[in-house]
Design a protein around this nucleic acid. Structure first.
Lengths: 197, 197, 197, 197
DNA sequence: TATGAATGAGCGTTCATTCAT
DNA sequence: AATGAATGAACGCTCATTCAT
């Protein structure tokens, strides 16, 4: 993005909505421009290409995701259950808000985003480490680093399955989250909190 | 697909490889034809459109996924750990083999596949029910149906996070799987196997 | 056409129906083959190309048209009115039967048929001459050759306007024909049958 | 057509020339664009499809035809011969200018133009009525409406046969026209101007 | 001889990008 | 800076023609 003017902001927001609604290839630059209320050419004043616009937009989304997870994990005064629950809460609203885009962030972004893959990998790894650290710091007993990371991956990916919008019809998402967090924390505690057989 | 002749098979296989490598929109019909070793027009002798080819290919992939999960869950003579472990093994090789496509199956297929969404939803639900039934039948204590399903979702989605190829550099995938299954089974047992606080 | 076997006949007939129904470009060789009850490749055993098939078919149609007009004009025992009336009757059924094709014959065949244009021109000229001869032989008074030909052209083209299927809703075509022939014969008689002012 | 800007005009004119020269199916959109001196994509800025472009172009041609016929029939101060003569003059230059297209207008447009058929039918009917009215208003004696229309059809179609460019080598077109109009007017006068036998 | 599976040239259309205003 | 008219590369699909059987 060239400047941080008002127009650039409008375009990024419009891009997020349009890309989220239809995916990268279905979205036309003209649609985004119209959604932003600017001319088609203006998009190219702020971004060098459709791809760059997409990547910049995705970066913002990813950053907001990371910030949310971090906020959840650092949720002041909570025990581990509370922290993980808040993390899930964030994930839930993130999925609700960003739909299609969220999938790209949580999983691989697909081949569209080769240039983004490394960054996403880094992001995911950082979050895994955060959760792993939480587990090792909080759960009684000593959890090997690698196994803590496996558990963290399991948790973060599992959360997405639980809070997926399509799954939230029978139970309130809160209830789903409580259950998942309980199972996970219990499981980690039991598995690593005592001598393992 | 028109017939089950040799060419149709070649084209489907080529389509799987090309779509997996580049995604739906990037894949050109001509690429698929070349990969299959046939002419461009031949593709249209067997499939009415690029979209139909894609959907038909995806259906095969989904079916192989379901068959593998089912085989894992019914793994003869194993206890629940063993069954879930084998399920994870299948998932692991599935992800390794089908790359990009696997994501579409495991998560939402995105807007390309609107026509497929319902089928995928059904598939995922069926698998959740299978895992939930296994939990209720195997874990001592009584687990409410809805919570069993939440746990099942958590497990299936979590597995994918653990066995993702990109995550399999430090630990052997087998080890990752063992850990995740242990955590999960312990967690469910502890959470539902006794009075819940 | 290579031989005069049964298949060749079937294909020509099918070609006439299909071309008449949809026009040259819309007709697919496969449609014609199916209509003829033969394989697609067989068409190419009898005709070297779609275009050749079309031209041979059109030649047949043109010949039958010419034969009909000639038969009408030579209608034994009739006076000029009767002869022209029978000519019109033939034209009428020709238009009804061959629809789209008839237009190509009566008017220019268009650029599709460059190779045919000369032949069609010859055909039309021949018919003009036949009618012109009839006029000069039958109408009292002396009609200059060139003006007889103009009148003949006027008559042949005018007929088509009168017997066009779309125009045959109010009056029986017979009545239309009678009127047109009357007007024409009266006109020629009056114009050329006496001293012209 | 989107606007009435310069480019749209250029494209329509180019389309008329190219379609007239080669017919609908042979004409490539790229040819039309080149003929108009614009890029291929520009055509689609002004017309939604090749078909729409064709139809819009044809509409213009038809309108100019109708206007010319009307002008001829209303030719101030002329008697009926003069009016019909001027109508023929217009038809003649129309055929000369628009070649292949003219045929589509004068006769059925063929299956390409299904959507246009109704409009063309209406146009032709309107012109038949105009000529029929002229006959009934001008020729002494009472001509039944239906027979006046038949005569009008005969005249309009016959004219085309007379003024066809290919026929204009021996006699000056003017002469042809005079002859045809004379024959026709004499014919109608004699046939309807007195008691009919 | 007869067939239809296989082919690829050809074309209509889309849309990211450019550039004159 | 802002615009949108103009552009043409790219691609899905059709169908006349070929050829192995």
């Amino acid at each position: 993005m060239r400047g941080e003017g008002n127009k650039g902001r409008l375009i990024l927001d419009a891009a997020r909505r349009v890309f989220a609604a239809t995916g990268y290839y279905q979205a036309r630059v003209e649609d985004i421009a119209r959604e932003a209320g600017v001319g088609k050419g203006t998009v190219y004043e702020y971004f060098t290409s459709k791809e760059e616009l997409y990547l910049e937009m995705l970066l913002e989304v990813v950053n907001s995701y990371v910030a949310g997870v971090r906020a959840g994990l650092e949720h002041a005064g909570g025990d581990i259950r509370e922290k993980l629950f808040f993390t899930g809460r964030h994930l839930c609203s993130f999925l609700t808000e960003h739909g299609q885009l969220a999938r790209m962030v949580l999983q691989d972004p697909g081949p569209i985003n080769f240039k983004f893959t490394d960054h996403l990998r880094t992001i995911r790894r950082k979050m895994v480490e955060m959760v792993a650290a939480l587990l090792r710091d909080t759960i009684p007993g000593s959890i090997p680093q690698e196994e803590a990371e496996v558990a963290a991956r399991f948790f973060l990916a599992g959360l997405a399955g639980v809070v997926y919008p399509e799954n939230m019809q029978t139970l309130a998402p809160q209830e789903n989250l409580r259950t998942a967090v309980d199972v996970f924390v219990q499981g980690v505690s039991e598995t690593f909190g005592r001598e393992r057989g």
